[in-house]
Write a protein that binds this DNA or RNA. Structure first.
Ligand SMILES: [Mn+2]
Ligand SMILES: [Mn+2]
Ligand SMILES: [Mn+2]
Ligand SMILES: [Mn+2]
Lengths: 221, 221
DNA sequence: GAAAATATTTTGACTCGTCAAAATATAGAG
DNA sequence: CTCTATATTTTGACGAGTCAAAATATTTTC
């Protein structure tokens, strides 16, 4: 029943809520994330509130109701399954599937989605390592560390890249840092705000800690 | 650049033009085909006219310009390739893919479409036997006969069903009359306005000539 | 060839999602 | 505590796509 726009708002509220520890998502953050002017976010959120999909407190922020959360997770599931299909089956580059999925997530029927899920063999993570919610809306939770928090000499496996920016993803790919790749932490330069890492097959590289914070890892072995 | 609605109008104008020998498509027909009120069709057609996608003559009708035709064929290509994907790859029933494709045809990028085309091995007809326009907008033309025009005793192969109605398609399927199936004309009952046919593996059936007109065939062998 | 029937266009209104800019509330600095 | 900076909401407007119903044009009928 919710419109495409409404689905996107719910999804963005969910994601912003996840990444900030705050209970309420501020309207400014939501507007920025949605790429709209703040007043637009306010008016949409009021509609979502009237539809009992969010709880909205003026001047404080917004959070999802159980119903809103359910829809947000469904949209996320669609998005990530579609991305997986585009990369695995049709060979699109992982850096270019996000925008396509952003549209398709609102267009594909439940029936088709489940067929695709079966076709892909029920994948649990998308090409960026993002977990795929189950059809029942369960999000397999794990708490991987950030690459930026690892200690010198450690060997870790990249498991997730939390940034959809095309240029960043291409950068990551060029240095062989896709989910599943192993790297060793070579040097941590606190003063220089950077980290030097040794990918398995590619050349060593130095990346700023801001970028390193966007790579999630788990211990190898 | 054209909106989803505009794409659909162009497609419908193209299809109506094909099926009627008239040069101009009347606004009433277009409105009915689009499922909108006549005034709505008029206002959209005026916009398409302003965008040089159609030539519109008040109180007479509308026809596509070269540019409009190009877009219509692209949309048709998308639609039919998507239907093929849904049936062949994801196993959806051919009677239920039309509505889904009606949406997806406006959502999928050119890049993805070409990947899907490659994945499917460049199909030339969709699950209903409708020809798929080439990427350059060439529509392989053939002029198959109608089942209703066949003569008694003839053996023919069904090659196309020109009706997207779910119930009709399910009826066709139940009697083993999908594109590719062979049938023999058993009895032609002019007075009763019906035709009796013998499918290969299924039971004989009698269908009205209105329905028989929607099945296109070619001579077997 | 006039009257009636039918088709088309026009007008005015509505919803949705959006922006610009004004009004207002809240948070922060001193 | 008061003033200023920042965040949020309100207001008024817009384009897209649509409908209902009135106005008008065209076609058919007699
Ligand atoms: Mn989206
Ligand atoms: Mn992703
Ligand atoms: Mn469509
Ligand atoms: Mn078809």
């Amino acid at each position: 029943m919710p419109s495409k726009a409404a689905e996107d708002y719910l999804k963005h509220i969910f994601l912003l809520h996840q990444r900030a520890q705050e209970d309420l998502v501020p309207m400014g953050d939501l507007a920025e994330s949605m790429g709209v002017v703040p007043g637009t976010a306010t008016s949409m959120v009021k509609k979502l509130n009237a539809a009992r999909l969010v709880n909205y407190e003026a001047y404080s922020g917004v959070k999802l109701t159980a119903k809103g959360r359910r829809i947000a997770l469904q949209v996320l599931r669609r998005h990530r399954i579609i991305e997986t299909l585009l990369v695995k089956t049709f060979g699109l580059d992982w850096s270019e599937v996000h925008d396509e999925a952003e549209q398709l997530e609102h267009t594909i029927s439940d029936r088709l989605l489940e067929r695709i899920d079966v076709f892909l063999g029920h994948p649990t993570t998308d090409p960026h390592g993002d977990p795929i919610p189950s059809a029942q809306g369960q999000l397999p939770k794990s708490s991987p560390r950030r690459l930026s928090d690892c200690s010198q000499g450690e060997k870790v496996t990249i498991c997730r890249i939390v940034d959809q920016d095309q240029d960043f993803l291409r950068f990551i790919e060029q240095h062989g840092l896709k989910p599943g790749s192993q790297v060793q932490i070579d040097v941590i330069d606190e003063a220089g705000d950077s980290i030097r890492i040794l990918p398995e097959r590619k050349k060593p590289l130095i990346m700023g800690s801001h970028a390193a914070r966007k790579l999630l890892v788990e211990s190898s072995g």
